[in-house]
């Protein structure tokens, strides 16, 4: 994971502030923003911010974590449909994993996602907590 600095920095508008793109053709919200809309070729979008509340569409509890996440396991991770459109895959935190349920209402919070090893940068982003 070393050398992640530039990659991390570049995505701050999304990871920190939920900046997305709304299609001027269909009104669909794309997160992260895209240059071209799948299906219709539309290239006109307006910048919007994700609404920070939504609903859990599906989830699981990760008990075998990839490198960097070992000390966090078990953790719940799921797909969230946000109220104003747009979907994210992220961890459901501040809840005992056995209480997580499909359909539950959640709210986005700013959290630390990981560390780039012991001496690298801290990696921040979005997680969700029960509403």
């Amino acid at each position: 994971m070393s050398g992640i600095t530039a990659r991390y920095w570049r995505e701050m508008p999304q990871r920190y502030r939920g900046e997305a793109g709304k299609s001027l053709s269909t009104g669909k919200v794309f997160f992260p923003p895209r240059l071209v809309e799948p299906g219709n070729g539309n290239r006109r979008f307006k910048p919007v911010k994700l609404e920070y509340t939504g609903e859990l569409l599906t989830f699981t509890i990760i008990r075998v974590a990839p490198s960097g996440f070992e000390k966090q396991s078990p953790y719940a991770i799921g797909i969230i449909e946000l109220k104003g459109g747009g979907r994210i895959t992220t961890q459901i935190t501040d809840i005992p994993v056995e209480n997580v349920k499909i359909g539950m209402k959640v709210r986005v919070e700013f959290r630390k996602i990981n560390d780039d090893g012991h001496e690298g940068i801290h990696l921040y982003g979005y997680k969700v907590v029960p509403e």
């Binding site: 992260p32 599906t58 990760i62 895959t89």
Partner: peptide, 17 residues
């Protein structure tokens, strides 16, 4: 960037399916 960064794994994605 949008799955792996937040801790998704393959067993995890198929488990969500």
């Amino acid at each position: 960037e949008w799955e792996g960064y937040n801790g998704a794994t393959f067993p995890g994605l198929y488990a969500m399916i």
